[in-house]
Design a protein around this nucleic acid. Sequence first.
DNA 1: CTGAAAGCGCTTACAG
DNA 2: CTGAAAGCGCTTACAG
Lengths: 347, 347
Amino acid sequence: MTKRVTIADVARQAGLSKGAVSYALNGQPGVSESTRQRVLRLALEMGWHPNSAAKALSGARSGAFGLVLARPASTLGVEPFFMRLISGMETAMASTQTALLLQVVPDHDAEIATYRRWWAERRVDGVFLIDLCVDDKRVPVLEELRLPVMVVGGPGHHGSLAGVWIDDASAMVMVVEYLAALRHRRIARVGGVPGMLHDELRSAAFDSVADRLELEWSTTIPTDYSPERGAQATRRLLSGANPPTAIIYDNDVMAVAGVSVAHEMGVQVPGDLSIMAWDDSVLCEITHPPLTAVSRDITAYGRQLAEHLLALLNGEVVTEVQDNPPRLVVRGSTARPTDHRPAAVTG
Amino acid sequence: MTKRVTIADVARQAGLSKGAVSYALNGQPGVSESTRQRVLRLALEMGWHPNSAAKALSGARSGAFGLVLARPASTLGVEPFFMRLISGMETAMASTQTALLLQVVPDHDAEIATYRRWWAERRVDGVFLIDLCVDDKRVPVLEELRLPVMVVGGPGHHGSLAGVWIDDASAMVMVVEYLAALRHRRIARVGGVPGMLHDELRSAAFDSVADRLELEWSTTIPTDYSPERGAQATRRLLSGANPPTAIIYDNDVMAVAGVSVAHEMGVQVPGDLSIMAWDDSVLCEITHPPLTAVSRDITAYGRQLAEHLLALLNGEVVTEVQDNPPRLVVRGSTARPTDHRPAAVTG
DNA sequence: CTGAAAGCGCTTACAG
DNA sequence: CTGAAAGCGCTTACAG
């Protein structure tokens, strides 16, 4: 096991040419079924694996997909989202021996430079584009490079690139309707980064449903998804003269931070304040009270994305695919608000 | 930008042979300084990047390090540890254009198969070995493959492989001494998976310091690092006749779960129960009360590991390196225990 | 200091 | 159905 087995070794052992062995191994026509079986068995016995560099150089695929994360290292570890997404992707990629190349960079310019380098180096067969923004400058670059891309997000705003999206807007409607049904009339949202598409979509949906349901009051406070900013937003909301009775947080970590702030300020959850987290995770289950959350199957989403990128490489036409809609998981952090004032609005 | 620039293009443009250009580009002797500068400038202008497959095939490095994570997808996202480690590694790797190949597998057998495949495919120049166990069966395989390896852990138990370790044993002594100084005499530990080296080291250190300090009582409950098991262990500990006054958790997520269980059971933190988390993270800061924790600079650790793996590839001798020791970050979850019984042990 | 040539291990037309 | 050969884009002895 100290020397690597090449296709020439297998060919010699089989008494065939390298070309014939290659055809047999790759399921190409031009070789009899019995020969193919014999070669396959022999390659397995001899412990042959294709040299990935040789394979890539001779025009085949590099056998890797790329994922660039342009978030600060500090934020990265916090949300379970990424690791879930990655492990979902790998589930689908494992069957085709495709590896995942991961790169962490500081910003979108460095991300674009990475795509250009990967393209020139022929490093990857395709990439996943994450954290899609409105007017995203990465999109035209990827279109120009003609690198196969699967966008994590949408709908729309990714030009001619393919993508898989989850319907956050409908989920937001569901969430607000749920809170309204509990008789909440003052609902706040601790949002994400304006300009990021999913944040814009959630904001727009939130505003429109608040309008339609004729809520007494509603507002969105933008954040950078960090627990610090989530806590700060919560303090600001709760110290107003007429605080909200429910807050929707754009991620799990900020929601947990929100619960802590409520505790600190002596605000009862869910008695005085209902709290909702957007992405469900184990964090939502272990806090006290456990958090009602919008749950998306991130692992399945990752799998979908990888499967569609593989399909794209196989020449299938993929444009915009919708993944399963989020579900509402009701736990202990949401309830009908305690009435401190005379009922006015509700009939 | 639609056609990739090769070394032949650069050579033609420069009026040199491909060999000369290669020497110039790689800083090899055999080319004048002025020629080298001219070639370098030209390559940059033309947007040349080496085709990674060609480079790897002609005997050079593949330009990638591999990391296999053999943990279930469910556990993966939860601990911020991995993403921090990874982003630290990438910091060091970015300067040498080395990419990180990430693979998630179900168990150690699949992990070993991945190493064998990567070796045969010449996919990676080296790998990081994580979650080191006592009598780890991955170690002899990697020794046999002669693949450059940097072990994340130790000390010892990794044969002839190189590794970087953090002194968890001393940290455990520091932690227990701190709790003992607060007059805790009944200390429990919610540990990790027996057989994993760092768990064994922490357990041994815990037992020995408990012994030396003549604690009234001490115990370790093993878990799988999941919050469920952490919560379960906490319930068991707190419902005993004579519960501990302090619990040390082997990760942040279980510590947070422990706080929730205490809340549920009406146990005051830190009045009735002091809680300590092993790896500090933003989770420890956002809970109420914020958690006292053992803090390790995971990003720096990742950087160290990558730097040493690069050094190993450059022919430097690396055996066993010790990284900075952990620090104790005192927050609100630890305090002197409220005395419910007549003082007996302390003078 | 420079150029021509072989070779890395595959794939893929092209003849037989 | 099979074999001999060229080629992918680099690196690296080997001559000059």
